[in-house]
Design a protein around this nucleic acid. Structure first.
Lengths: 156, 156
DNA sequence: AGATATTAGTACGAAGTTCGAAGTAAATCA
DNA sequence: TGATTTACTTCGAACTTCGTACTAATATCT
């Protein structure tokens, strides 16, 4: 019997969700996106997100975020415009294409969540989601920045 | 109020644990190891692990595992020897150096776990660990291979 | 206001990561 | 024994990441 190793448990669950959502997107014909790009894309708010916020949310450097966003713009998943509130900043916004992709990813995540609920039982599952959310709220620096991640936009 | 997004919650918690353990190791003077290497290293059993198993456990390709293990051998974190049971296979084994590093990482993880327990309360925390472990057990293909990850060796 | 410091993002380049394709050797199957 | 599978390696190309250094805009201080 393997005894609980929190780090590995978290790692496996995270990768599983991420990879399956990503695979679903690729299987739907969106092969022109990478996992790293998807991680950034999935953090973009419905009303647009600043590059620095995306970097923080995806836990990469600003340079990396800039780079990935540029690629996402090039392949039509994002548009970028100056932030009216601060002309140093740039707002990345979703496109029709990325909203479609987000729906596909979201659907797959919903399937996974359903499976996990079956697996664990409703009570345990709800507990898990709630507790993880509490944990995230306490930990994530992105939350202190103010913007909320889009509900419907799932990670790929 | 942010509503629960399971993927992001999992991502944040995983990265937090991983990064803090890794930082603790680096701060202790072990700067000659990378995060990708550490992910593989942390999956090595006390009695040695085969490369293919490591690849599966770390969720990378065999080529990547081969590459990272070679680097870890070069910097003294692993030794590799042919598996007596199957001469095609190679067993990666921990060294004194990596056992020290594992202790450092483990200590930091223990600190994090303590913090999380305080944060969530003992009951919720225990629930979380147990549920995640159940989930992992059901999901992780590595488990079907047979070898158990080392308890004391934490992920970095 | 004017000087200074901070913040948002960019550019460049080097190092690290990842994996497909193709290959070798050992074990297993028929 | 011959055919197939499995474990790992090699090579090469694409992707990811970030340190250093830079520009522009905003915030702060006097």
């Amino acid at each position: 019997m393997t005894q609980p190793n929190l780090g590995i448990s978290l790692f496996v669950a995270t990768r599983e969700l991420e990879q399956r959502a990503f695979n679903a997107v690729a299987a739907a014909g969106y092969g022109d996106i990478t996992l790293a790009q998807a991680r950034v894309l999935s953090r973009v708010n419905d009303d647009g997100s600043r590059l620095g916020d995306l970097a923080e949310a995806a836990r990469v450097s600003k340079q990396t975020a800039t780079h990935l966003v540029a690629e996402l713009v090039a392949s039509g998943y994002l548009t970028v415009e100056p932030d009216p509130a601060d002309r140093r900043a740039k707002l990345a916004k979703l496109t029709k294409k990325s909203r479609t992709v987000a729906k596909i990813a979201g659907a797959e995540v919903a399937r996974i969540e359903h499976q996990w609920r079956e697996l664990l039982g409703p009570a345990q599952y709800e507990q898990l989601v709630d507790t993880l959310h509490d944990l995230r709220t306490a930990i994530d620096p992105y939350l202190s920045v103010g913007s909320q991640p889009t509900p419907s936009v799932a990670r790929k």
